[in-house]
Simulated assay, not measured.
Amino acid sequence: MIIAVVDGMGGGIGAQIVSSLRDELPTYIDIYALGTNSIATSAMMKSHANKGATGENAIVTSSRKANIIVAPISAVMPNSMMGEVTCKISEAISDSEALKILLPIMPENISLVGLENKPLSLLIKDTIKVIKKEFNIK
């Protein structure tokens, strides 16, 4: 099984996701760190992702291989993350057959109503619960 974690900017969110996934899930699960830039990829690799790749083509290609994609919701919004998310990146993630777990971390000019405002640590715990339930992982 492959879980792709997509992040940009400084990679802080992705690094926290990778670290928690690594702590909570079995070691046979591969975690790919997919950064929109090398700083984000590096931060996620330091959190013990199995593989890492950077940039549009890496994200597009790896999104096809992933069983699960975990990312901030902005990863499916073209031109978000200060322009780091290209149209091809957002399209590849959206079109992937992988289960997509999108964390409701919004760009400043977007609000989603009806969502509970939770800290990142609780969003990550919820992410792990979804993965364990969907794939029968104990």
Rank of each mutant, 00 (worst) to 15 (best):
L103N: 03
I59D: 06
A71H: 04
D30F: 06
L122T: 15
K138L: 12
E56V: 08
I3S: 04
S19E: 14
I93P: 10
K118F: 04
A4F: 00
T127A: 13
V18K: 02
T86I: 11
A58Y: 05
S80T: 04
N57K: 13
S111G: 05
T27E: 08
I13T: 15
D126A: 13
T27K: 09
G8A: 10
R22W: 08
K129V: 14
S121W: 12
N37E: 00
I29N: 02
I73N: 03
P119G: 06
L122C: 13
P72D: 08
F135E: 01
G11I: 10
D30L: 11
K132M: 11
K133G: 00
K118V: 02
S94N: 06
V60H: 00
P78R: 13
T36R: 05
I39L: 15
D95T: 05
I128Y: 11
N79L: 12
N79D: 12
A98V: 09
K65H: 10
F135H: 03
M1G: 08
G14L: 07
T36W: 10
G55L: 03
M44E: 13
N79Q: 12
A92R: 11
S94L: 02
L115H: 08
N57I: 10
A98Y: 11
L122Q: 15
E24A: 14
K118G: 03
K133I: 08
N117Y: 14
I69Y: 07
N50A: 07
T36Q: 11
V130Q: 09
R64C: 00
N117P: 09
L25N: 02
A43C: 10
D7V: 09
Y28I: 07
I3T: 10
V60T: 04
